[in-house]
């Protein structure tokens, strides 16, 4: 007994000295400076807004990502975000100050149309997505060019496409809209989780046994559109697909049940968005592409883990 307590006590001391060492190491490497710098940035409300919104968007997009990847609809994010881009251009030309509701409605309608055509259409799913995607992009750019009052058109376009600064220009209303929408998306996803699983795994079985497949597909389309419009603020319309597919693909390398894949991709996505944003603040890199690069890195790590796991089993 005494021996044990002596042992524990020395372990405790050890731990303490290790902690001390870690603190010294942090100081030596200048990590403390990094924390100081971050603390400095966090004093600005727009940075805090950006982090909150970024994490929420990452969470929402990853939840849907699993379903979209499995339904072979990976590119729907791309298509819809281009539609949203076109809608934003129209809103800008029409002089709307708050373009979010308009963009949301247009995107929801296109999402519904796209997911419907996936089932029984003359133009197949991927072709329909490609058509709507580039069509909206061209019209949007044309409108912006012809009618824009801004002097820096290419800068505006670049911002919408890659989301370079728009996340840092969020005002309080937009932040609340984002929080409200993402709460709604997460709630809907949890309530319809089992239905979403059923229609993703086997649509015809679900329909045959009395699940209202078209209703749930519609709900899914609306959720997807809402997420896309949200995510445009963070990464811009060209990079949204990355937020949707990478976390899902990463977790599918390692996890084997639908629930664990979904949970893991949500966690991956949040962590990647968070670290991506912190890196971009410190290294002053563009927010969207930094997050995506972190996502890519994590994908390769998970790919390797999946590979090793399979190897061990054999």
């Amino acid at each position: 007994m005494i021996l044990l307590s002596v042992y524990l006590f020395t372990r405790f001391l050890n731990l303490f000295s290790e902690y001390d060492l870690a603190v010294r190491l942090i100081k030596k490497l200048g990590i403390a400076d990094i924390f100081d710098e971050l603390a400095f940035y966090f004093k600005f409300p727009f940075v805090r807004y950006a982090i909150i919104v970024g994490v929420l968007i990452a969470l929402c997009s990853s939840l849907l990502g699993v379903t979209l990847v499995l339904k072979r609809f990976s590119f729907i994010g791309d298509g819809l975000s281009h539609v949203a881009f076109g809608a934003m251009a129209v809103a800008a030309v029409a002089g709307l100050t708050n373009d979010m509701p308009f963009v949301l409605i247009v995107t929801v309608i296109s999402a519904v149309l796209l997911l419907r055509t996936g089932q029984n259409a003359k133009i197949k799913g991927d072709a329909a997505v490609a058509m709507i995607s580039v069509g909206a992009l061209a019209i949007g750019y044309l409108l912006m060019n012809v009618f824009s009052k801004s002097a820096n058109i290419s800068g505006d376009v670049c911002t919408t496409l890659f989301g370079s600064t728009s996340i840092l220009t969020l005002n309080k209303t937009k932040v609340w809209i984002c929080i409200g929408l993402s709460a709604a998306v997460v709630a809907l996803f949890m309530v319809f989780y089992n239905k979403i699983f059923a229609i993703t795994f086997d649509e015809s079985f679900a329909a045959a046994t009395g699940t209202r497949v078209s209703l749930y597909n519609l709900i899914l389309a609306v959720i997807i559109a809402a997420v896309i419009v949200l995510a445009m603020n963070l990464v811009g319309s060209l990079l949204i697909s990355a937020l949707v597919v990478f976390p899902a693909l990463s977790s599918m390398r390692v996890f084997k049940t639908f629930r664990s894949v979904t949970v893991c991709s949500a966690v991956i996505s949040i962590l990647c968005a968070l670290s991506g944003m912190l890196i971009s603040i410190l290294a002053s890199t563009p927010v969207g592409s930094t997050i995506v690069v972190v996502d890519i890195a994590v994908f390769f790590v998970f790919y390797l883990i999946g590979f090793l796991k399979a190897g061990i089993k054999k």
Partner: peptide, 29 residues
């Protein structure tokens, strides 16, 4: 009416446990 459809391409690499799939049979009721 229970239904055993032909397998689709989507299902071949679907990450789900057997229990999750079997449970989804109750979705309709």
């Amino acid at each position: 009416i229970g239904y055993l459809p032909q397998q689709t391409q989507i299902q071949r690499d679907f990450p789900a446990s057997v229990l999750e799939i079997v449970l989804s049979g109750f979705c309709g009721v």
